[in-house]
Write a protein that binds this DNA or RNA. Structure first.
Length: 274
DNA sequence: CGTAGACCCTGCGCGC
DNA sequence: TGCGCGCAGGGTCTAC
């Protein structure tokens, strides 16, 4: 379900529900998601601990607990993290869940199992292989045209792939990469070496605006998105080009085109993007 | 070193 | 109705 806005909306939806609750026990029902689930590690870091805060880094949701532990959840392509009643029947693909002192259950349902769940010491999160090499947050002050230009130096390849490289900037997924490029008027195949400084500025601003707007609108580019309370129904934030092959560009009405870059569908307007 | 491609896995919609 | 194919928000590993 995820791009960064979905994760942020999930975090915000859980904010009034989780902090103050404590974990009674963890329920590991599958051997592995992307990585093997560490039953003992989860028990050790979670059971008896109280949730003290919720943070987000890239597309990882960080659930901080008393005693200096953090539960890290990544939803992959198809994960849904929801808080349900304790008696709710175990759903198909419910790989891991956490029983809370409220009687509720925080569960991860993830059919494709590209998600990730692990617990670690809060102080050492930065050393974890999944988090150690992440680039700057797209909504923070570090993202700028100058930064994008500097990191692009000496690199080749399409600008779309560059924007999606989490070592440079995190949280720009396949949907919002296309949307950001459209907003900035940049062709997805343009080589990073041929992007002018002013264009990098426009791209940085476009990424920020597109992600910010999606969060403000409830984060849902995705038909199957639910927030932490299991509420669907925000549906379809305004997307200009993604998934609209053949449809009219909102700006110039020319038909949107689709190409494949890095194995991913990429949408753009041949009239507006150069 | 950077880059391109394969790969992990399930489910859905489409054309036949 | 059933089958095979292509495609889907993610990240990571390998081969060049």
């Amino acid at each position: 379900m995820p791009e960064l806005p979905e994760i942020e909306v999930l975090r915000l939806s859980l904010l009034p529900l989780l902090p103050g609750r404590s974990v009674v026990r963890s329920l590991v029902r599958s051997l592995a998601l992307r990585q093997p689930l560490d039953r003992r590690g989860l028990s050790h870091h979670l059971e008896g601990r109280t949730v003290t805060g919720l943070r987000r880094r890239a597309k990882y949701l960080l659930i901080d607990l008393s005693g200096g532990s953090t539960l890290v959840v990544h939803l992959g392509m198809s994960g849904q993290l929801t808080l349900v009643a304790g008696q709710a029947p175990v759903e198909r693909h419910e790989h891991v869940a956490f029983e809370l002192d409220s009687g509720q259950r925080l569960r991860l349902v993830d059919p494709r199992r590209f998600g990730m769940v692990f617990a670690a010491e809060t102080d050492r999160l930065g050393d974890h292989p999944s988090l150690a090499h992440l680039g700057v947050e797209p909504l923070g002050s570090e993202l700028s045209g100058a930064y994008l230009a500097a990191r692009a130096r000496g690199r080749r390849g399409p600008v779309k792939n560059y924007l999606m490289d989490g070592r440079i900037v995190v949280g720009v997924g396949n949907i919002y990469a296309s949307e950001s490029l459209w907003r900035a008027g940049v062709h997805p195949k343009r080589s990073v070496g041929r992007v002018a400084p002013a264009t990098w500025d426009r791209l940085a601003e476009a990424v920020r605006a597109v992600l910010g707007q999606a969060i403000a609108e409830g984060g849902t580019t995705l038909a199957d998105f639910t927030d932490g309370g299991g509420n669907a129904g925000y549906f379809q934030v305004s997307l200009a080009v993604y998934g609209r092959e053949g449809g009219p560009c909102p700006s110039c009405e020319r038909p949107i085109k689709r190409v494949v870059l890095g194995g991913r569908s990429t949408f753009y307007c041949p009239g507006c993007q150069h």
